[in-house]
Simulated assay, not measured.
Amino acid sequence: MAKGKEARVMIILECTTCIRKSENQKSPGISRYISQKNRHNTPSRLELKKFCPYCYKHTIHVEIKK
């Protein structure tokens, strides 16, 4: 049986503190992670606490649009 849409989709997670830093001053980069989520179980934007190599600490990473 064929399904209409795939449940699992690829998402990009981006550091929230690096975004704020880059607006005010020059930052070395923005931390991004690639992950998957189930569209049916989690329809809203995903927020995870991940390590940011530019901030040197664990920060909240939010899902961005591709």
Results as ranks from 00 to 15, higher is better:
Arg20Gly: 08
Pro53Ile: 15
Lys26Pro: 09
His61Ala: 03
Glu6Gln: 06
Lys21Asn: 10
Thr17Tyr: 14
Met1Asn: 11
Ile64His: 01
Tyr56Leu: 15
Ile11Arg: 00
Gln36Trp: 10
Lys5Ala: 04
Ile11His: 00
Lys50Tyr: 08
Tyr33Gly: 04
Ile30Asn: 08
Leu46Ala: 08
Gly29Asn: 03
Ala2Gly: 04
His58Thr: 09
Lys50Met: 10
His61Gly: 06
Thr17Asp: 15
Lys5Thr: 02
Leu13Val: 03
Ser44Lys: 12
Arg20Tyr: 00
Arg32Cys: 05
Tyr56Trp: 13
Leu46Thr: 13
Pro43Val: 11
Ile34Glu: 13
Ile11Leu: 04
Ser44Gln: 13
Arg8Ala: 03
Gln36Gly: 03
Thr17Ser: 14
Ile64Thr: 02
Arg20Pro: 00
Ser31Leu: 01
Asn24Thr: 02
Glu6Phe: 01
Ser27Gly: 09
Thr16Phe: 00
Thr16Arg: 11
Asn38Glu: 11
Leu46Trp: 06
Ser22Ile: 03
Gly29Asp: 05
Glu23Met: 07
Thr16Gly: 00
His61Val: 00
Thr59Ala: 08
Pro43Arg: 15
Cys15Asn: 09
Arg39Phe: 06
Thr16Trp: 00
Thr42Ala: 15
Leu13Asn: 11
Tyr33Ile: 05
Ile34Leu: 12
Gly29Val: 02
Tyr33Ala: 09
Val62Leu: 07
Cys18Arg: 02
Lys21Ala: 09
Lys50His: 05
Gly4Arg: 09
Ile34Trp: 12
Thr42Tyr: 15
Pro53Ala: 14
Asn41Tyr: 08
Lys49Phe: 01
Ser31Cys: 12
Tyr54Ser: 04
Thr59Arg: 14
Lys57Asp: 15
His40Cys: 09
Ser35Glu: 10
Gly29Thr: 02
Lys65Val: 01
Tyr33Met: 05
Phe51Leu: 14
Lys50Phe: 03
Tyr56Gly: 15
Glu63Gly: 02
Tyr54Asp: 14
Glu63Asp: 02
Gly4Gln: 03
Arg39Gly: 06
Tyr56Asn: 15
Met10Thr: 12
Lys26Thr: 11
Cys15Ile: 07
Thr42Lys: 14
Cys18His: 03
Arg8Leu: 06
Cys52Ala: 10
Ala7Tyr: 03
His58Phe: 10
Met10Lys: 14
Phe51Ser: 13
Arg32Glu: 10
Thr42Met: 14
Glu14Met: 12
Arg20Lys: 06
Asn38Gly: 03
Ala2Tyr: 02
Lys50Arg: 15
Asn41Glu: 14
Tyr54Ile: 13
Glu14Val: 06
Ser27Asn: 00
Thr16Asn: 09
Tyr54Asn: 13
Lys5Tyr: 05
Arg39Glu: 11
Arg39Val: 12
Asn24His: 05
Pro28Thr: 05
Lys21Ile: 09
Pro43Leu: 12
Ile60His: 06
Arg45Trp: 07
Glu6Asn: 04
Glu63His: 02
Lys66Gly: 05
Thr59His: 08
Met1Ser: 13
Thr59Trp: 02
Lys50Ser: 03
Ile64Asn: 01
Val62Met: 12
Pro43Phe: 10
Val62Phe: 07
Tyr33Lys: 13
Ile34Asn: 11
Met1Thr: 06
Met10Gly: 06
Glu47Ile: 07
Ala2Cys: 00
Ser44Val: 07
Leu13Ala: 13
Lys26Cys: 06
His40Tyr: 12
His61Tyr: 06
Arg45Glu: 08
Arg45Gln: 11
Tyr33His: 07
Cys55Ala: 15
Asn24Leu: 00
Asn24Arg: 12
